[in-house]
Computed example of a mutant assay.
Amino acid sequence: MAWWNHTVITELMFLAFPSRPELQALFFLGITIIYAAIVTGNLLILAAIQGDSRLHTPMYFFLGALSVVELSYTAAVVPQMLASSLQTRKTISFGACGAQMFFFIGLGGADCFLLAVMAYDRYVAIRHPLHYTLIMTWQLSLCLVVASLLVGFLLALDLVVLIFSLPFCGAHGIQHFFCDVPPLLWLVCAKTETHEIAVFLAGTAAILVPFVLICASYIFIAGAVLQIRSTRGRRRAFSTCSSHLVVVVLQYGCCGFVYLRPSSSFSPEQDQLLSLVYTLGTPILNPIIYTLRNGEVKGALRKALWKPVSLGVSESH
């Protein structure tokens, strides 16, 4: 019977959206503004990095890769979320739900590993400044980005295959805005203890392992910073890391709370709010944090934005 219930499912319904039309309109407007800011901010960072040769270094290569990944994983969720908010029946096909989960988890996992890579890059830059270019070669930088993507998508593939091979029965409504692991496990009509352990192990690999690597990197960074004699040198070394630390705390704090806890403590309302924080909050804060606390990026942005204006003025004359 479980097998039959599993095979007849063709769509799932999202239940987290506001039911009142005026609240739906506010939700749509708010998410649209935030998504537009995410796209604009991250595209500006990419334009600044591309347009200023001084930023053609591994540090900014990783920052650009982070922007691309965050643009991609918000694109895997937000457009569908906006479309659902305007629909009377807020449904998604079973196959589309699996595809959305695969890209969201894969790119989200890659995002976590990229933050660990960026911490290692800062460690090398501060601990071994004279050998930085010899250690952080372009070949190694590209390999680290590709490895982050591969590990993220391999973990996502395992999770999606695992969850969507389970029998779903009963109500097919998801207490969420998009397809994610915890709310889908609640729809399974079989014992899920083993699968919850697998989800926890995958979450550990994607969240806890990179976080431990980041902590180790910053322990060594702190030791190196304390050895710098000049106050100005210590301040500059810290400023290159503080932006990254803010993003790390936000990203890993929210993701760890959602994925590294037993399903018995699953709270739909709480998880819905947290999911919006790490889906929309980190991608919109990244451009703001890295721009406000990085003079080189601010200079490159001014240069990139001023060039079209100056060209237009000169052509008018």
Score class of each variant (00 low, 15 high):
residue 1 M to Q: 07
residue 3 W to M: 12
residue 3 W to A: 13
residue 8 V to L: 12
residue 13 M to K: 14
residue 14 F to N: 03
residue 18 P to V: 03
residue 20 R to I: 11
residue 25 A to K: 11
residue 27 F to W: 14
residue 33 I to R: 10
residue 35 Y to F: 15
residue 37 A to S: 06
residue 38 I to E: 03
residue 39 V to R: 10
residue 43 L to I: 06
residue 44 L to W: 08
residue 46 L to K: 09
residue 51 G to M: 04
residue 56 H to C: 09
residue 59 M to V: 05
residue 59 M to I: 05
residue 59 M to D: 13
residue 61 F to Y: 09
residue 64 G to L: 02
residue 69 V to G: 02
residue 72 S to Y: 04
residue 73 Y to R: 10
residue 85 S to Y: 03
residue 90 K to S: 01
residue 100 Q to R: 08
residue 105 I to S: 02
residue 107 L to H: 00
residue 113 F to G: 02
residue 116 A to H: 00
residue 117 V to C: 05
residue 120 Y to S: 06
residue 124 V to G: 00
residue 128 H to M: 11
residue 128 H to S: 05
residue 133 T to N: 13
residue 138 W to V: 03
residue 149 L to I: 15
residue 153 F to W: 08
residue 161 V to R: 12
residue 163 I to R: 02
residue 165 S to G: 08
residue 167 P to I: 02
residue 171 A to H: 14
residue 172 H to A: 11
residue 177 F to M: 07
residue 181 V to P: 04
residue 183 P to T: 07
residue 185 L to M: 15
residue 189 C to W: 02
residue 195 H to V: 14
residue 196 E to V: 03
residue 196 E to Q: 14
residue 198 A to C: 10
residue 200 F to I: 08
residue 215 C to K: 10
residue 218 Y to M: 06
residue 223 G to Q: 12
residue 224 A to T: 02
residue 236 R to K: 10
residue 247 V to T: 07
residue 249 V to L: 14
residue 263 S to L: 15
residue 270 Q to L: 12
residue 272 Q to K: 09
residue 275 S to C: 08
residue 278 Y to K: 03
residue 281 G to S: 09
residue 281 G to F: 00
residue 291 T to Y: 02
residue 296 E to W: 10
residue 299 G to F: 00
residue 310 S to N: 11
residue 310 S to T: 12
residue 313 V to F: 09
residue 314 S to E: 14
